[in-house]
Design a protein around this nucleic acid. Structure first.
Lengths: 156, 156
DNA sequence: AGGTGAACTGCTACACTGTTGCATATGTCT
DNA sequence: AGACATATGCAACAGTGTAGCAGTTCACCT
């Protein structure tokens, strides 16, 4: 999947969606925030900081590197997005669906990362459920499940 | 847990264990390799590169940063150790037990990371087991389960 | 409208983790 | 001991993310 395929168009409904999501949260819908959220809403997979910066630049709304970091942190703080760590030491960001926002288990979903292209997908339908016993003294508050393998784009 | 508490002593049995493990693998038991493997064998949790470097320096065997990276990669290649990614973008390293080395599922164990001190533990006894269905086109080759919460050292 | 204050943005500089290239040192084998 | 492969150390670099600060923009309130 190329970067341009996830580009938002300034006249699309997604732009309005991004703006209204921010306004509904009672926050300032600045251009930077709209652009970034729009990009995240328009792609099914999680994007790296670099990918988001490229997409914004190609859309004619180049953002400063630092500003993008701050916008992303802000989106996470407002629970409009979340970030996922992976083995390549790069954060990937994805918009949170409205459903997920209303759910009490907002961040409780599994992830899939392709071993071959590195793309990372949220598996919203897949809620980890398992039984285990921890060694004494350990208290579990949260479980993260990441599946690794081959994504649809990397079939032989 | 302080760094010094995981320091190996040059006269301990662990040093001999590290050396013999390397020799059994048919490889050169250089001082750097012995020191690093010894440190990993002597601690129950996974250590960062920085922690290992400090431990080696305190033991009187200061290593070059790059050499340490290469020794760690070498240990992983020889399946004497493994590394684990975590949200702080830092690799943590742990020795693989002899049992694990003989097992076909060497790396198939869960991890626990403390939200409060960042320490990371391997849960060798805890093998992830769950049933799930992936979206079409996704092929799972490997699953990683990381539990997050409070470790024994961080109780109120 | 215009003023005010909070916030957002962009620039520069920096810290940290990890890698590459190359010269030197070390270990192993004969 | 000598030769050769390999391991080590140094320097320089790349990528990701953060901190400080000045300048700009925005929302709100007369």
């Amino acid at each position: 999947m190329s970067i341009s395929s996830v580009l938002p168009s300034q006249t699309s409904g997604a732009s309005l969606q991004a703006k209204s999501l921010i306004q509904e949260a009672g926050e300032r819908p600045t251009l930077s925030r709209q652009v970034v959220l729009e990009i995240l809403l328009n792609t099914p997979r999680a994007l790296t900081h670099t990918e988001i910066a490229s997409a914004a630049a190609e859309a004619g709304n180049a953002l400063d590197r630092v500003t993008l970091y701050r916008v992303l942190d802000w989106l996470i703080d407002k629970e409009l997005a979340h970030k996922i760590a992976s083995e390549d030491r790069v954060w990937r960001f994805n918009a949170l669906s409205r459903d997920a926002q209303n759910s009490s288990s907002t961040h409780e979903h599994a992830h899939f990362q392709c071993k071959y292209c590195g793309q990372l997908y949220c598996l919203d339908e897949l809620r980890p459920a398992f039984a285990f016993t921890l060694p004494p003294g350990f208290q579990c508050e949260h479980a993260e499940l990441t599946l690794r393998g081959r994504c649809p784009d990397c079939q032989d």
